[in-house]
Every structure is written in structure tokens, then in C-alpha cells.
């Protein structure tokens, strides 16, 4: 294991985060705060409570997940796409590093950044609405698992993309709809029967549900199933990443 290389890539990526602190941290926090204002204050005034939890607090886990997903993908995809775009990837490709080590460095850094971001948003939310966390360990577990899973997905997108447009394509066309339809702002139980069934095919539903359970002990699907679904997503992304490095897909001519 070339640990020096993993460290080098990780530090390189974290340094990039520090350089771009404004876009990396401030912007997502600001946009999440806006969600709180719009959904929490404006709509929350009419909804009041969902299953005994004030609406403002109810949407906190979903909002954190929303940012976590989009930011994990954005970070990781950009982190690997940019060196491909500028050509500096030659160095990583000619270095004595395995696919696993490259992924550990890039995905590890992207996931770290997302977890920090998630915790900052959580702290911000706690300042605005009264919040309780029933299962902090499970909360952290979901936070880390989701960050890693979607950073891996971002990493794959960053390798697949052949231009900045494609880099935006998957997040815009697939991930954003899935997150909005994933029960971030509502309980899936609130949907009519048919749509409720459809929603259960959306993996984000399980992430949000499990994460929300760790806060308020209430969930759309049992927390065990949420965890299993999250792990399945992680496994799928891991398999895809492994395949990419086995075949040299889009990295080596």
C-alpha cells in the first residue's frame, strides 16, 4: 500500500478545499439557510407538525442529506475531472499507485469535506430551529456512509464525463430530482398510495428516512432497511470504481 501517495492526494484535495473555502462551505450553508427560510418559515407556518415533530425541525435531516448528496458528487467529480481536463492526471497515472489508493485519496478528501459541511449545516440548523438527536452514533454513521457513497458516485462521474456539461448532467438530471422526490421536505407517508410505491424505488428515500430516524426515531421505512439500502448503494459504487480501474476505462488509452 502506497500510503504516502494516498496522503499526498488527500492533502492536495484538502488544500484545494481550503483555497476555495467560499464556494466549498459558505455557499452550501447559505443555500441551506434559504431552504429553512422558505420551507421552514413560510410553509412550516401552515404545516405545523409532521408526526409530532415541528415542520422546521422535520426537514433538517432531509436538507442535510440534500446538501451532502449534491456536494459529495460535485466535489469528487470535480476533483478527478479537473486533472483530466488540464492533463495533470498523467502524473497520477504514471505513479506507482493502485486504483484503490487513487480512490482513497480523492474520495476520502471529498467525503471528509462533505461530512464537515453536513456538520456545519447541522450546527446552523440548530441555531434556527430547536433540534434533538436521539441516536447520534447512527446519525454519524449515516452521514459518513452517505458522504462516502456519493463521493464515490461523483468520482465515477468525474471519470466518465468528457466535458463540463456532462459533469453537470448526472447531478442535474438524476440526483437533484431523486433528492427532491426523496422525502427531504415531507414524509413519504404523505404521498398518495401509487406514488408512495414509486417512491420506494428511490434510494434517496432510504437515506433520508434512516437519517431522520437517527434524529427523531421516526422513519418511513425501518432503519435496518435504510442501512441495508445505503450499504447496497455503497457496494454498487465500489464495484463500479473497481471495474473502472481494472479496465482503465476513460483513464488509459
Amino acid at each position: 500500500m502506497n500510503l504516502h501517495a494516498v496522503k499526498a492526494i488527500y492533502h492536495f484535495e484538502m488544500a484545494r478545499t481550503r483555497r476555495t473555502l467560499l464556494q466549498s462551505i459558505v455557499a452550501p450553508v447559505l443555500s441551506t439557510a434559504l431552504y429553512f427560510v422558505v420551507f421552514g418559515a413560510a410553509i412550516g407556518g401552515r404545516i405545523n407538525e409532521v408526526e409530532g415533530v415541528p415542520y422546521g425541525a422535520f426537514i433538517v435531516p432531509g436538507l442535510i442529506m440534500l446538501s451532502l448528496l449534491t456536494q459529495s458528487i460535485a466535489n469528487a467529480s470535480f476533483g478527478i475531472y479537473f486533472p483530466r481536463f488540464t492533463g495533470t492526471i498523467y502524473e497520477v497515472l504514471s505513479a506507482p499507485v493502485s486504483g484503490l489508493e487513487i480512490a482513497l485519496g480523492y474520495v476520502g478528501a471529498a467525503a471528509t469535506k462533505s461530512v464537515i459541511l453536513g456538520l456545519i449545516i447541522l450546527a446552523t440548523a440548530a441555531c434556527i430551529v430547536p433540534l434533538r438527536i436521539d441516536h447520534p452514533a447512527v446519525m454519524l454513521l449515516f452521514l459518513v456512509l452517505t458522504a462516502v457513497t456519493f463521493s464515490l458516485m461523483g468520482f465515477v462521474i468525474g471519470i466518465w464525463a468528457e466535458g463540463f456539461e456532462q459533469l453537470q448532467l448526472v447531478p442535474l438530471l438524476i440526483v437533484t430530482p431523486l433528492t427532491f422526490l426523496g422525502g427531504s421536505f415531507y414524509s413519504v407517508d404523505m404521498l398518495p398510495g401509487f406514488w408512495r410505491t414509486v417512491a420506494l424505488f428511490n434510494p434517496v428515500v432510504y437515506l433520508v428516512s434512516g437519517f431522520r430516524w437517527s434524529f427523531f426515531s421516526l422513519a418511513d421505512v425501518p432503519v435496518g432497511i435504510s442501512l441495508a439500502a445505503t450499504l447496497a448503494c455503497l457496494g454498487a459504487c465500489l464495484a463500479l470504481t473497481t471495474w473502472i480501474f481494472r479496465t482503465g476505462y476513460r483513464l488509459k488509452k
Partner: peptide, 13 residues
């Protein structure tokens, strides 16, 4: 930073 990065990438302390 970039030169130190290269050293690490190639597995050197």
C-alpha cells in the same frame, strides 16, 4: 506544494 505532492505520489516519505 506541487513538488512535495509528486514525491508523496511516488511513494517516498
Amino acid at each position: 506544494a506541487t513538488v512535495s505532492f509528486s514525491r508523496g505520489l511516488f511513494g517516498k516519505a
